[in-house]
């Protein structure tokens, strides 16, 4: 298939960018979206134009590196990651607009690459259970009810891609944050720090410049791991408990 790509090009964080149009030909529908971009880059390299920079690593849908806004949808038209999106989801002759994640807290680094280190700082502010290596009790000494463990697992599958932020009209990271709060809050091991954790992580979320949540729900639809909106409710509830406990 032949396609027209409109891609955001930006030299670096300081420069301002613009949309550029490229024609690519000979795209197979078995290609993944990123392989299609590889093809474009190979062609650009041949022509002496600098290839388009984009983040990717595992290309298996699990590392959370890939992050493209495709035709106005985070990760494109399917519920999956950009790397798992295949060209058969598009049609011959189509124009595809590719943009970086847009959020104040995710500044553009180059072309389609953004800086998501704010997520690391949110985790640093409390997204863990404090246990030093070697001090752990025998694993089965604390049973965790199966349903709670299941829920913890389901939300722990968040890959930290940031699609939720990219899709949210408020640029809120509530889904990401809620997923971590729910994961750790559902497990018996996570209880001692529960209040402090939520207060601290929410404070960091706000300090990073993410927006508040208006419960719009675009985030969950864009989430490749289908993290449900429950986690935002849980986040709010935990914060309310923390308020009550004096945090």
């Amino acid at each position: 298939m032949n396609l027209t790509l409109k891609i955001w090009r930006q030299k670096d964080a300081q420069s301002s960018g613009s949309m550029q149009s490229y024609a690519v030909e000979g795209i197979s529908e078995d290609m993944s979206f990123l392989e299609m971009l590889d093809t474009l880059n190979e062609q650009l390299n041949e022509r002496g134009e600098e290839p388009v920079a984009f983040d990717h690593d595992c290309r298996e849908g699990i590392c959370g590196s890939c992050d493209l806004m495709i035709n106005g949808q985070a990760h494109g038209p399917e519920v999956t990651t950009t790397c798992q999106l295949h060209m058969r989801s598009f049609s011959d002759g189509q124009t595809i607009t590719i943009e970086p994640w847009r959020a104040g807290a995710f500044p553009v680094v180059k072309d389609l690459i953004v800086d998501r280190s704010a997520f690391d700082r949110i985790i640093q502010s409390g997204g863990y259970i404090s246990v030093n290596t070697g001090s752990a009790p025998e694993a089965n000494s604390v049973p965790a009810p199966r349903d709670k463990a299941m829920r913890a697992f389901n939300v722990a599958t968040c890959i930290g891609c940031g699609a939720c932020v990219a899709a949210c009209p408020n640029g809120s990271a509530s889904l990401f944050l809620g997923a971590k709060i729910t994961h750790l809050g559902e497990l018996p091991q996570g209880q001692p720090e529960r209040m402090g954790r939520v207060a601290s992580m929410v404070a960091q979320h706000d300090a990073e410049g993410f927006g508040g949540c208006t419960n719009i729900g675009e985030c969950t639809a864009a989430c490749p791991k289908e993290i449900p909106l429950d986690v935002i409710s849980q986040l709010n509830k935990d914060l309310r408990d923390a308020l009550r406990a004096g945090y």
């Binding site: 863990y128 752990a136 694993a139 497990l187 091991q189």
Partner: peptide
Amino acid sequence: NIIDQCVAQGVPFARDYGGLL
């Protein structure tokens, strides 16, 4: 020891109905 450490960190391993690993 690895399993003990990971469980204490909150790694959500599969569990049976009794809540054990």
